[in-house]
Amino acid sequence: MRRLVPILMAAMLAACGGRGDEAAIVLYDNSFSVAIIADNSDGITSPDGLLWADGVLYIADEGGSAIRKLEGAVLTTLADKSSGIISPEDLRLSADGTLYFTDDSAGGLWRVTPRGAERVAGSEGMSESEGIAVDPAGGVDVGDGASGRVFHVSENGVSEELIAARMSKPESMVRAPDGSLFVADNRTDHLYRFTAGEARREIMLPSDLSPESIALHGSTLWITDSSNGRLYRMEQDGEPETVALFLADFANINGIAAAPNGRIFISIQSDLSAGEGYIVALSPTAASKR
């Protein structure tokens, strides 16, 4: 017995060796592969909004109070807290190449300049700016989480209410090619589509879907659900379909961007206060491209 105890204890400890780390992804669509494209070792912290444009991934690095871009494997910081940024939320590129972003702590609308970033519109009325979309007719639309309103900000920085209807937290917005505006309300878990003339149509979602960020790829709307760690794909007038489930340290999925080749980029905030996070990419496999 005296010999048996240490042997059993040693065997028990040996059996406790790690079989994995603390994050997992369940991929329901076999036509995608998944890879980490950036993490803390690359220089990002806890990323939120993402934008893909012309081979560059723009990142609203909320944990690091910075706007960065990832081009290939090269990460560059475009603006940081020295410009007054606190919690960059989401970002969009206008037709003239200006990179605009929102900040849900500093408020207002911001743009990246060669010297960092500057505020385009003040935080009055937009104290918690969240969703952002470029208006094809000029200017930028901004959703405010404090008032629940969506504003239009012209190039000269004048803001006016775009949509009369109030929401609770217009967290993410995206323009469709037809000019209509999708707005995800993350507080009441609703998704709306506003067409010209402000006609509002609610897109019915399952009761357990809490839309965090949305992105369009063709006619497909991609939705992250940070409350449940789910990535959804939704065809026009179709039902949302779960593409992937992010678990444990990956569960808090936030921003999303779609590339023209079908790649989907997702930001993950593992621990915002500790500045930990990842960006993963879902890429269509060779078989699915054929």
Binding site: I25, V26, V34
Partner: peptide, 15 residues
């Protein structure tokens, strides 16, 4: 759970 396609994070890489 592993009857679905499952990927885990191990030593900073997906497996």
């Amino acid at each position: 759970v592993q009857s679905e396609r499952t990927i885990v994070l191990e030593s900073g890489a997906l497996r």
